[in-house]
Design a protein around this nucleic acid. Structure first.
Ligand SMILES: [Mn+2]
Ligand SMILES: [Mn+2]
Ligand SMILES: [Zn+2]
Ligand SMILES: [Zn+2]
Lengths: 138, 138
DNA sequence: AATAAAATTGTAACTATTACAAATTTGTAT
DNA sequence: ATACAAATTTGTAATAGTTACAATTTTATT
């Protein structure tokens, strides 16, 4: 993704969010840094641009984004939540060595039905060693 | 499960944990109440027996249990962690209406490989409506 | 019984997140 | 442009789960 400001604003409007300077910067950050950032990552990432930026504004923004389906919150058992601009269902792999988080497609033989239950959403997380870290430790 | 004290103590020793009065009570609670309790649930559950019980002791105990493979910590995106005496891989369904948490078996042919990644553990969580709550809301 | 080791307690610290009111910015009508 | 209203942003305080750690109590060993 490499959208200009007008396109970013349209994207927000599509999701019923009135564009604002912080919302545009946060959305752009999320699109350009698809690393499943924490609130603090976002704060540090766009803080240089906005000297008076408050962490609360990032919280407000990601919560609004979540409510309106712009991001999905992901929880990997860390203390901080992470936010994913990719809202389509997919799995996450967290490397326990380097901390990187990788996307992977949901296994096609995954059980997507449980009799008499209504499944609204699922969260599929794996933990282990990524290829680089695995190689490093032979 | 309905083990007597001696059996509970043996179970702990098998996991290299020296039995103690609190550890025995917590383990028994976890076996008798397989509801994926929080620290607070455990504290309230066994607090009547031990008037001087401290929450810190529950934290100490569940952390020790986790380290030694007696329980597995589960994280359902709530603020509190939950603890599961069933350490075999299985999925969790959380009802968003009543809050109950249900176990479900993972498909045994579930894709447990990602090429070049080493998977140490996985966490599979579904969210939605349980049969009772689904029926209630027609 | 004396001593050492381990378990338990109580309090304070830490930290992610939210609540909320004040301040600032943006939009609108005159 | 000015005045006013609405929305956004900020700053600080409150909340809550968890951990750090020293003091106390319990358990084991000599
Ligand atoms: Mn992702
Ligand atoms: Mn379970
Ligand atoms: Zn890695
Ligand atoms: Zn239910």
């Amino acid at each position: 993704m490499d959208l200009n400001n007008g396109e970013i604003m349209d994207y927000l409007r599509e999701k019923d969010i009135k564009p604002s300077s912080i919302r545009i910067k946060v959305l752009k950050y999320l699109m350009d840094n698809q690393i499943h950032p924490t609130v603090d990552d976002i704060y540090k990432g766009i803080g240089d641009d906005i000297p008076t930026l408050s962490r609360t504004s990032i919280y407000n923004t990601v919560n609004l984004f979540k409510q309106n389906g712009v991001v999905v919150e992901i929880n990997l058992g860390e203390k901080e939540s992470r936010y994913d601009i990719n809202t389509k269902p997919h799995g996450h792999f967290k490397c326990e060595k380097c901390g990187n988080i990788y996307d992977f497609p949901l296994p096609e033989n995954l059980n997507k039905k449980l009799s008499n239950f209504t499944i609204n959403r699922m969260s599929i997380n794996y933990y282990g060693l990524c290829p680089d870290c695995r190689k490093e430790s032979e």
